[in-house]
Design a protein around this nucleic acid. Structure first.
Lengths: 122, 122
DNA sequence: CACATCGTCAACCATATGGTTGAGAATACC
DNA sequence: GGTATTCTCAACCATATGGTTGACGATGTG
């Protein structure tokens, strides 16, 4: 199955706008490191590090073609992450309507009512 | 829709086994900070920090009941992450069969000429 | 009241992350 | 050959992360 550490890597790889942008554009086909870096507001070296993060997470693979490195999506890892979330989605839908009732009475501690969404900040 | 920074937070929140474990157990119903911390091999203070990360990402919310802090899942943010992945899943399925062929001939002969030129540029 | 429990907070430490620059290895082009 | 392009690598820096411990506020419980 999907070991825990690998999952860490995948989610961490996705925890950056720059890297998600790369994944998004990679979904339309392979791109070189330079092409991936182009639209990002950072040096090539910085972007290359992001590519490396994606690669180490297994989210992308690279093939070297002459002097350029061609990157492409690897479906598996992203699918694993998606499935992890999908699994818990069931619980949400199950709980979603029950949750309102639940909040009203079921879980209420013996001496204090629990309210939904107290909107507290900081 | 889902702003980029919020997405960063959600994926980062999920990029830790400890925090995913919390989410997993939270899917079965609300738990206190202490209950969330119990199975994890770290101090309560450390676990409380993880709870805080989840909370700031909007993945969970907390209500204070006396001296206990009760945490529950907030479906929205996780659903957003799931949808982000779901969107690109389409691209994967399109490319999935093409990829296998590509890999089959691209990797087989180590000294054969490098094959595909995906981006014909200058 | 005295005491245990739950959780936060602050200080501290080690390491990881995200960016920079400069140098250099390959490769392509003239 | 000489030069430009593509990308990696190493050094460096600032800040974030993930853990620790100790003290403390607030709340239950005897």
């Amino acid at each position: 199955m999907v070991d825990d550490v690998a999952m860490d890597g995948v989610f961490h790889a996705l925890a950056s706008g720059a890297r998600r942008d790369m994944v998004a554009r990679l979904a339309d086909g392979p791109l070189t490191v330079g092409q991936l870096a182009a639209p990002l507001d950072m040096s090539l070296a910085a972007a290359a590090k992001h590519v490396q993060v994606l690669e180490r997470a297994g989210v992308i693979s690279r093939t070297v073609d002459g002097r350029r490195h061609i990157c492409r999506l690897v479906p598996g890892p992203l699918a694993s992450a998606q499935e992890w979330l999908e699994f818990y989605r069931r619980h949400w839908s199950e709980r979603l309507d029950a949750l309102e009732e639940l909040l009203a009475e079921d879980f209420a501690p013996p001496d204090a009512p629990v309210r939904p969404r107290p909107a507290e900040e900081e």
